[in-house]
Amino acid sequence: MAHDHHEHDDSCGDECGHNHDHSHEHNPTDELVTVRDLIRYATSRFNRNKLVFGHGLQDAYDEAVYLVLHTLHLPIDRLEPFLDACIPTDERTEVLEIIHRRSDERIPAAYLTGEAWLGEFRFTVDERVIIPRSFCAEALADGLSPWIDDASQVTRALDLCTGSGCLAIVMAHCFPSAQIDAIDLSPDALEVARINVEDYGLQDSIRLIQSDVFSALKDERYDLIVSNPPYVTAASVDALPPEYLHEPAMALGAGEDGMEIVRRILRDAHQRLTPNGILLIEVGHNRAEFEAAFPALEPVWLTTTSEEEKLLLLRADQLAA
């Protein structure tokens, strides 16, 4: 996310008109003059409306900064030089519209901006795909060491339930010699994935396949299968905050215990892995549900920046029937 420095001084001192003439009727938002004002206003509004931030940004302030900078076409990793920049009325109108849509319609920020980030990777997203937020990307960042000694050992990999294509793209960067299949049941999701694969110029490395789990595959076997499948329990689906209802329902819910798709993956994974292959699955908050459903399995639970272990790793020999 490197950006060029702007040479001119964007601060505006006193000429910004913080000293409004209050003799005429005006809209209270007319007093929001600078980037700082707009961020403050958005943060307060988001907190007042009790918005939920589960799509990549931590809290109301982070989301306010991101939405204001993105809408003003400013580098999203450099706030300081612009804090006191005065915002002309047309730009302010645009920023306020985004702030109000986020707070009133509870649309996740990524759908308002059309982009989402996983670490340094940017992806195009819209309401056809779940917003990328997988802990798998963190685990992949170090090449799944120590379970994979050498990235060049991975020549075939599979991203199961690919959605926007995000994990397939991360895998292509971590394992440059791998041919990667990216599977999703949704043709709409695969259209978005195609945009992202082409944006990264990875058409030769990543093959997009419409399939219900493994069903459309022939006899392919993989050194690595990664999946961030739907895993939300029925009770949790019923309690989802409004933000999540903008996402495709099929990308979230997975039956009573959230393990519906995971069961299908584990049933067939052994036939899909090479003898030394590895399976990485994200199950979110559902470690207890996983352990109840598969008491005989002893996966390695990977630690990430999350406060709980949400990723499990199994070797092919653990999955032998």
Rank of each mutant, 00 (worst) to 15 (best):
S11W: 07
E15I: 08
S23G: 07
H24S: 12
D30A: 10
T34G: 00
I39E: 04
I39F: 01
Y41I: 02
S44F: 06
N49G: 08
L51H: 06
F53H: 14
D59Q: 06
A60R: 02
L67F: 00
L74K: 09
D77F: 06
R78S: 15
P81N: 08
L83Y: 08
L83V: 07
A85M: 15
P88H: 11
D90E: 15
S103A: 15
A109W: 02
F121M: 08
R122T: 12
R122V: 13
F123Y: 04
R128T: 09
V129N: 00
I130P: 00
E138N: 07
L140F: 04
L140C: 07
L144Q: 06
L144T: 01
R156S: 13
R156C: 07
L158C: 14
T162E: 11
G163D: 02
M171S: 10
H173G: 14
C174K: 03
F175I: 04
A178V: 01
I180D: 13
D181S: 10
A182S: 09
I183A: 10
D184V: 05
D188L: 10
A189S: 11
R194T: 14
E198N: 13
I209D: 13
I209R: 03
L217R: 03
N228F: 02
T233N: 04
D238T: 10
G255V: 08
V262R: 03
V262I: 15
L266N: 06
R267M: 11
Q271M: 11
T274D: 15
I278W: 04
E282I: 09
V283I: 15
G284D: 04
H285G: 10
A292T: 12
F294Y: 09
P299E: 09
T305P: 03
E309I: 03
A316Q: 08
A320C: 11
A321N: 12
